[in-house]
Amino acid sequence: MSKKMTRTMIDTEEIKGVSLWADAFRRLLKNKLAVFGAIIIIFFTLVAIFADLIAPYPYDYINFESNEQFAKPSSKYPFGTDEQGRDMFSRVIYGSRISLSVGIVTALVALIIGVTYGAISGFAPSKVDELMMRIVDILYGIPYMFFVILLMVAFGRKDYMLFIGIGAVSWMTIARITRGQILTLRNNEYIEAAKSIGVSKGRLIFRHLIPNAIGPIIVYLTLTIPSIMLQEAFLSFLGLGIQPPKASWGSLATFGGTLGAIQNYPHLIIFPGLALALTLFGMNAFGEGLRDALDPSLKNRI
């Protein structure tokens, strides 16, 4: 060992230790795109929380006094009005509530299923593990979006079916990541130590393994939320998701997404569409920034 290196080591010891998360946070703040993404997320979250205070009208308010269908954007209706004369500005504001909550709740459903399945698989004997992963492989081959459509048709277009349907098809990647993490962690010495003092299997998984495997899972989760929101928007746009008069950004675009409406009333699709695109951009930018920050060696990878 050279002199220089020894000195570096001593120097390092004098510096105050930084935790993994604090270090990641510092790197995250340096990433302009990620910070921009975080600002967008905070903005739309606040809009969703305070929708009642911001929106000039209730989301289902129709002004029967005057006939104001398809009004162009104006100072009275900044985003114009829809086919029923409802204020699009208010509807886009309330839409943020449903779009964001579908994304978050469904991602949590996917997280719970995925982590449990992946952890059990990673911890089970290799025969069981192999079988469980084979099942995931087979499920992966299924064009699941069509199954979610079938599910929505079969069981009525209920909001909770949307959570279950999309959640039930989004857990598989989380399961794979969790399993991978567990497999690398399970041979660590502290696991041996825990085993040797007779810690139960359940406690071992949930107290020791999962907390240590959580980094990549959180990163994937932040990237799952926008992809789930995109799927909800896809279904709602086709008329199979959120049902009127309730509004998500996807369902708001349904009427505006016809050829006639695009030609005559482009504001019907532009405003909800941009709100959704901006939010998803923010989430993707933030999620990727978070990934780079937590594990710089993964930078530039998919």
Partner: peptide, 29 residues
């Protein structure tokens, strides 16, 4: 990042608004 964030039902109308309705160089669907 933008490409994976903009939903298909927004991409298509934007194309239509630019090329079919604005510039009138492509048919409207």
């Amino acid at each position: 990042i933008l490409g994976i964030s903009v939903p298909m039902f927004v991409i298509v109308p934007i194309f239509l608004l630019i090329f079919s309705i604005g510039l009138k160089i492509l048919p409207v669907g």
